[in-house]
């Protein structure tokens, strides 16, 4: 299974949730597969999906899923100690770890080599870290959503991409409709 397969299986679970989607293909695939006002598409700023997600979770009570990638977490490793030490029980960091920079041509990342993102998250102090295979993504995300505990999920999947168009929505429109869902 590649990332888009994982996202397809998750849509029934996450369609109505507040999602902060990482720059590039995660945003573009969610936009293609299940565009929702509850999706905050990042159009730039690689690395910050988990930070935006945590800030949003700390600011209000609805559940928040940051849909992140291995390359982006590697770029912003400082996020993990901040998450560990500022626990938001309504926050799920879902890292789709395909061991590659998918949006830029599948160059390998270190998470596909010697570096384990789940071990790093645990070492940073995150209390509830779950590593799963792509086939178990649905059950893992479901139990995280059903629970009341901040969860870091590292979902391992194969590298590979489907063809998706770029998002031509105006960023202010993305923000505006998202904030209305948050306030609803």
């Amino acid at each position: 299974m590649i990332r888009s397969d994982v996202l397809k299986t998750l849509i029934p679970l996450i369609s109505d949730q507040l999602l902060v989607t990482n720059i590039g293909l995660p945003s573009q695939e969610m936009h293609l597969l299940d565009d929702q006002p509850s999706n905050f598409y990042m159009l730039g700023t690689m690395g910050l999906a988990s930070s935006i997600g945590l800030g949003l979770a700390l600011a209000q009570e609805k559940k928040v899923i940051a849909l992140d990638g291995d390359g982006s977490v590697l770029m912003n490793f400082g996020t993990l100690p901040t998450i560990a030490n500022n626990v938001a029980s309504n926050f799920i960091l879902l890292i789709i770890d395909n061991g590659s920079y998918g949006s830029t041509g599948d160059q390998p990342t270190y998470s596909g080599m010697k570096t384990s993102l789940s071990d790093v998250a645990r070492a940073c102090g995150c209390d509830h870290v779950v590593e799963c295979q792509a086939e178990d993504a649905f059950d893992t995300v479901k139990s995280a959503l059903d629970g009341d505990q901040m969860t870091i999920i590292v979902c391992k999947c194969e590298s590979g991409n489907i063809k998706v168009p770029v998002i031509d929505m105006d960023p202010v429109v993305i923000k505006d409709r998202f904030m209305k869902v948050v306030q609803s």
Binding site: L48, S51, I52, G55, L58, Q60, N76, T82, V182, Q183
Partner: peptide
């Protein structure tokens, strides 16, 4: 709510998220 950041770009992400959440 005071949240120390490890780097300032991370901090801006936190602030952006908090703003989306009404802070």
């Amino acid at each position: 709510y005071h949240i120390p950041a490890n780097r300032e770009d991370e901090g801006m992400g936190l602030c952006a998220g908090a703003y989306l959440g009404g802070k």
